[in-house]
Design a protein around this nucleic acid. Structure first.
Lengths: 360, 360
DNA sequence: TTGAAAGCGCTAACAT
DNA sequence: ATGTTAGCGCTTTCAA
């Protein structure tokens, strides 16, 4: 039977080390300061004493005087969405490289929760990466005034931003559908508070103009498989031959919803998504989608944040734009000349996956 | 052009509020202490003054005196693995309810990284939930001596644990396969440092004994789709009719690997996974799998941790066991009497998804 | 290079 | 119910 009483946590302090090493506390402090300002034999001896005593510097106390916690916050819109996993990895790698710890915050697609969480965490971290924030521009600017902030997947004036090339991605998708004979594309919208949602629709509007493809929008729907299934119902009421969905999860939901109602993808309807999540390659038919360099997004945003924390000005001109590419799979096919009637899938006509080249 | 120089961050302190409200600093402190020990009109007035001045209590300074940061750490083995998303949600919900902030740490399937991260974070948090830790028992016990710790998906003596009913899950899977006529099951192992991996294999050994089904093990493989694809190759060299995989991601990899090599699932080989991730319902054929109450795991572990932080003894007797259920989809079928030859899939014979009842 | 002294912003005994 | 005093563990002037 283990004893259930917590030991009174006798912390070894700098003072204990100082006594043991027969130096002043400030000398001990210097031996542990970063960058190690002291390399003398004394410092080395102090470190050994500290090691022996099991001394660990208390980050809270240090932070109180330096106002540097060596932690950054990474806020993501929805941890359930697999896109963020890679972004988190990229961010964490960059943070670890800079000797920073990352505090992950899941906003659960809620403006309110996001604000509350950021407010609570703000004073505990040295900077914040906002990935796909659902907060208002003004709220974000307010936070940016108090701490270094980098925004991901969104462009806000006067705040450093990292975005992917949405216009280009949409354009490529529209071209692809156009080449397949579609003269009409329905955009299935995601959350209205999502910046990419807005720019994707506007980009489609523009691309449609240039390519002489008619476009329309339905939604908004929740950016999940469920949202996609609901969108599928609406699509049935107002048929199209080509769909561009806000993201892959919705696209997958759309494919499943349509299939259940007897509509063949890609026979009757072609579907394109965004993000190239793992599941896009798993569903049947495989999902044609616009892929973004997720890991690079997280890492670029974080690296930039660290330079700002270190005192750099923060790149607030144009946002940093990362390239995208179109990954063609089986969910898109030439337009069905006789819509509404099922037709055989073109087995073998399109490769299982397309190693589409990166953009320049 | 925004000014790039950070304002000197003039923090409003308790002292400023005290002066403005014409009371002593400690009175201000009390007005903000939790639980609010003061409800007098003075306290209300102080809060209004604070509001007006934009005062925010500094959690770092507070933590320095109270040694309570109101933060807990949640360590997960691999953020890329979708099982953890729901666990995180459950944990965060519970933490938020208790006015705690969750610091998420991704161990990236690495013992070393996990230790380093926990060591760095330990002194900053009031407690730790270790979900599927890859660290050694002794390392975990060491941490548990310094901070309240709850372990998820693993049983360690003298440390509070929350686990799912692995033996029961394996047993149900084995029974299911047995009923389908399989007299031989191959277990495809995951990481050796994973506790569920060990217990699943041992449980299968036991179930095989009782049900008179022969069992064997191959692996270990990485608990990812890639790992599953590699396992599929080995499975081809040593054929079976029934496979139980360490988790769903591996199971999906196995199905894809086998399909690519011309082996039909479930015609030639039945495959069962673990976890019931979303993708299990997405692949073709749908994956039969043992489902765990992910959200409940995260929430139960966290709630228990919070009681420990509040001073409760910590339930170190038997681990808390959460029920599982078998979700039957299309990846399992009656044993093929003429192995090696493709045979038609039994369309419509099995429902698309089975609303299997929860265990008692 | 080292030591002494003065806080960082807050809370927790004590008093009153 | 409020004020006074003394720190939490560390860093940082300023002197030596």
């Amino acid at each position: 039977m283990p004893d259930h009483t917590r030991p009174p946590d006798k912390r070894v302090t700098i003072y204990d080390v100082a006594v043991e090493a027969a130096v002043s506390p400030s000398t001990v402090s210097r031996a542990f300061s970063r960058p190690s300002r002291v390399n003398s034999e004394t410092a080395e001896r102090i470190r050994q004493v500290a090691e022996r005593l099991g001394y660990r510097t208390n980050p809270l106390a240090r932070a109180l005087t330096t106002s540097r916690t060596q932690m950054i916050a990474l806020v993501i819109a929805d941890i359930t969405n697999p896109v963020y996993a890679e972004i988190v990895r990229g961010a964490q790698e960059a943070a670890t490289d800079g000797e920073y710890t990352t505090v992950l915050i899941d906003a659960q697609e809620s403006d309110r929760r996001e604000r509350a969480a950021v407010e609570r965490t703000m004073s505990t971290v040295d900077g914040i990466v906002l990935a796909s924030s659902r907060m208002s521009d003004s709220a974000i600017r307010m936070f940016a005034k108090q701490r270094p902030v980098v925004v991901l997947n969104r462009a806000i004036a006067d705040v450093p931003c990292v975005v992917t090339d949405n216009p280009r991605g949409v354009r490529r998708a529209a071209e692809h559908l156009g080449e397949l004979g579609h003269d009409h594309i329905t955009y299935v919208a995601g959350p209205q508070a999502s910046w990419p949602n807005g720019i994707r629709w506007r980009s489609l509007l523009e691309a449609g103009m240039e390519l002489e493809i008619k476009v329309r929008q339905i939604g908004p729907f929740s950016p999940t498989m469920d949202g996609g299934e609901r969108a599928a119902q609406e699509l049935c009421a107002r048929p199209t031959t080509a769909v561009l969905a806000f993201n892959d999860q919705m696209a997958i939901g759309i494919i499943r919803g349509l299939s259940r109602m007897g509509v063949n993808v890609p026979g009757d309807v072609s579907v394109v998504g965004f993000d190239n999540i793992l599941a896009a390659d798993l569903v049947t038919p495989g999902l044609t989608t616009v892929a973004a360099p997720l890991y690079a997004e997280g890492s670029a945003a974080t690296r930039h944040l660290l330079t700002m924390i270190a005192g750099a000005p923060g790149h607030t001109g144009r946002p940093m734009v990362l390239p995208v590419r179109l990954v063609v799979r089986q969910s898109t096919a030439a337009r069905n000349p006789s819509p509404g009637r099922a037709r055989p899938q073109w087995v073998g006509q399109r490769p299982a996956s397309n190693p589409a080249a990166h953009l320049p």
